[in-house]
Simulated scan of single mutants.
Amino acid sequence: MKRIIVVLVLFAIMATYSSCSVTLNGASIPAEMSTVDVEYFDNNALFVVNNLSQNFTEALKQRIRSQSRLSIVRTPEADAVFSGAIIAYNIAPVSVQATGNGNTPPIANASRLTITVKVKYKPNNSKKGLEHAEGYEQEFTKTADYTGDIGSQEQALILNITKQLTEDIFNKAFADWK
């Protein structure tokens, strides 16, 4: 009998809160929000990888499609807009190995790829139900360490970092709803 009461109480609490928002994979999205516009993220980094902008933009769209009920649209009337740019793409050594003699410079034993994206997320506050929705403008940075030549690993590293970045961007926009 106690289990039935507990289940009914939990069901009543969930029903009360579900009228305000929809939750999926930890995301809380207002019921009034149904569309989002993801603008193209230009690569403004000093070092440009040809497919990085396209791949990042598509990865963010895919993250939204797979983890929410939102539709991706290209219109100023969208319920929210993601915009921004890739602002840094850097490769730097993280550990150095000395060579055998004093005349040869040390070589990088491991290196780190770092990608930084500046993102602006803006809900359409003129729409009913979204008047108090908050946006943000923030930089997101992720890294991946590797050994050896970057050429054979670069696309896999970019994919890994992109996955982490889009997760952070999605969570910042939709897991911070109050």
Score class of each variant (00 low, 15 high):
Val38Ala: 04
Ser126His: 10
Gln67Tyr: 05
Ala133Met: 12
Ser95Val: 02
Asn109Ile: 01
Ile5Asn: 06
Thr147Ala: 14
Asp145Gly: 10
Lys118Asp: 13
Glu39Leu: 12
Ala110Val: 05
Asp145Glu: 15
Ser95Ala: 11
Met14Cys: 13
Val81Phe: 01
Gln97Ile: 05
Gly135Thr: 08
Asn171Glu: 11
Ala173Ile: 05
Val36Ala: 03
Ala110Cys: 09
Arg65Thr: 05
Pro30Val: 07
Ser21Gln: 10
Ser126Leu: 13
Asn25Gln: 13
Phe140Pro: 02
Ile29Asn: 01
Gly135Ser: 11
Lys178Asp: 10
Thr114Met: 08
Asn50Phe: 12
Ile107Asn: 02
Ala15Gly: 10
Gln155Asp: 15
His132Ser: 08
Phe47Ser: 06
Leu159Ser: 15
Gln67His: 04
Phe47Val: 06
Ile13Pro: 04
Ile86Gly: 00
Gly129His: 08
Lys61Arg: 14
Lys127Ile: 02
Ala88Val: 06
Ser95Asp: 11
Thr23Asp: 07
Ile158Thr: 04
Leu46Trp: 05
Lys118Phe: 09
Ala88Arg: 10
Val73Tyr: 02
Ser21Cys: 13
Phe41Lys: 01
Ser19Arg: 12
Ile161Met: 10
Tyr89Lys: 04
Ile72Thr: 02
Tyr136His: 09
Leu70Ser: 01
Leu24Ile: 14
Leu113Thr: 02
Asn124His: 05
Val22Pro: 00
Arg65Val: 03
Ala144Ile: 11
Gln164Ile: 09
Gly84Met: 04
Leu8Asn: 12
Tyr17Arg: 12
Ile161Thr: 05
Ser19Ile: 08
Glu131Pro: 00
Ala98Arg: 00
Ala59Trp: 02
Arg69Met: 06
Ala88His: 09
Ile5Cys: 06
Ser95Pro: 04
Leu46Gln: 07
Thr116Asp: 15
Ser18Val: 11
Ala45Cys: 04
Ser19Lys: 12
Val7Asp: 09
Ser68Gln: 01
Phe11Thr: 15
Asp149Leu: 14
Gly151Pro: 03
Ser83Gly: 08
Arg112Pro: 03
Arg65Ile: 12
Tyr40Gly: 02
Arg112Ile: 08
Gln97Met: 09
Val9Cys: 14
Leu8Ser: 14
Thr162Gln: 12
Asp37His: 09
Thr166Ser: 03
Gln62Leu: 11
Asp79Ser: 04
Asn101Leu: 07
Ile64Tyr: 02
Ser152Gln: 09
Phe56Leu: 10
Tyr17Ser: 13
Lys118Pro: 02
Phe11Arg: 10
Phe56Ser: 01
Asp79Arg: 01
Ile115Thr: 03
Asn50Arg: 13
Asn109Ser: 11
Lys122Val: 08
Arg69Gly: 03
Lys178Ile: 06
Phe56Cys: 02
Asn125Glu: 07
Val6Leu: 06
His132Gln: 06
Thr16Pro: 01
Lys178Ala: 09
Asn50Gly: 11
Glu154Tyr: 04
Asp149Pro: 02
